Amino acid sequence: MYVRPAAAAAAALLGFTLTVLGGTASYAATGPGPVPGPPGLLGNPVVYAHRGASAYAPENTLDAVDLAMRLGFDWVENDVQRTKDGELVVVHDDTLSRTTDVEQVFPDRGPWRVRDFTAAEIARLDAGSWFGQEYTGARVPTLREYLDRVQRNQQRLLLEIKKPELYPGIEQQTLKVLDEAGWLDAWHVQQRLVVQSFSADCVRLVHELRPDLVTAFLGTPAVADLPRYARFTDRINPWHTTISAEWVAAVHGLLGAHGRTMEVDTWIVDDATTARKVRAMGVDGIITNAPDVVQEAVGGYWQG
Score class of each variant (00 low, 15 high):
103 E>P: 05
32 P>T: 01
2 Y>K: 03
133 Q>V: 13
271 D>C: 00
138 A>H: 01
81 Q>T: 04
57 A>D: 04
26 S>E: 09
209 L>N: 13
77 E>P: 05
88 L>W: 01
256 G>R: 04
17 T>M: 08
131 F>D: 15
90 V>T: 01
91 V>H: 02
149 R>D: 04
14 L>R: 15
243 I>P: 13
23 G>I: 09
114 V>S: 07
282 G>M: 13
155 Q>M: 14
90 V>R: 02
279 R>Y: 09
126 D>C: 08
1 M>V: 00
240 H>S: 12
217 F>N: 04
192 R>D: 14
298 V>H: 08
133 Q>S: 12
169 G>K: 08
55 A>G: 13
41 L>C: 03
210 R>S: 11
97 S>D: 15
168 P>K: 14
134 E>D: 15
143 L>D: 08
212 D>Y: 02
56 Y>I: 02
254 L>Q: 06
116 D>A: 04
275 A>S: 15
181 A>N: 09
287 I>Y: 08
192 R>M: 07
177 V>Y: 04
65 V>H: 03
50 H>N: 12
9 A>N: 13
94 D>T: 04
163 K>M: 01
32 P>W: 01
301 Y>F: 02
68 A>L: 00
131 F>Q: 09
154 Q>M: 11
172 Q>I: 08
65 V>F: 03
224 A>T: 10
141 P>M: 05
119 A>V: 04
49 A>T: 13
203 V>H: 07
215 T>I: 10
173 Q>T: 00
60 N>Q: 03
129 S>F: 02
120 A>Q: 14
218 L>I: 09
242 T>G: 13
172 Q>W: 03
277 K>F: 06
117 F>M: 15
80 V>A: 01
97 S>G: 14
212 D>N: 07
211 P>W: 02
66 D>F: 00
48 Y>S: 02
221 P>Q: 03
42 L>A: 14
302 W>Y: 09
86 G>R: 14
2 Y>T: 10
46 V>I: 13
206 V>R: 03
160 E>A: 04
172 Q>K: 13
227 P>L: 06
148 D>Q: 15
66 D>G: 05
150 V>I: 14
103 E>A: 15
243 I>S: 14
127 A>N: 10
177 V>Q: 10
61 T>L: 03
183 W>V: 11
235 R>H: 05
230 A>V: 02
40 G>H: 13
285 G>T: 14
66 D>N: 06
77 E>H: 02
53 A>T: 03
248 V>S: 10
287 I>A: 08
61 T>K: 04
192 R>T: 05
103 E>R: 03
248 V>C: 12
176 K>N: 10
100 T>P: 09
86 G>P: 09
112 W>I: 06
12 A>K: 04
294 V>D: 06
26 S>W: 00
142 T>M: 10
10 A>C: 03
199 S>F: 07
229 Y>T: 05
279 R>L: 14
200 A>S: 14
2 Y>I: 06
50 H>Q: 13
86 G>H: 11
71 L>M: 11
300 G>K: 08
46 V>G: 12
108 D>T: 11
89 V>L: 06
197 S>E: 12
184 L>Y: 00
213 L>N: 07
141 P>V: 05
27 Y>L: 13
277 K>W: 10
9 A>I: 15
143 L>V: 07
18 L>M: 05
29 A>S: 12
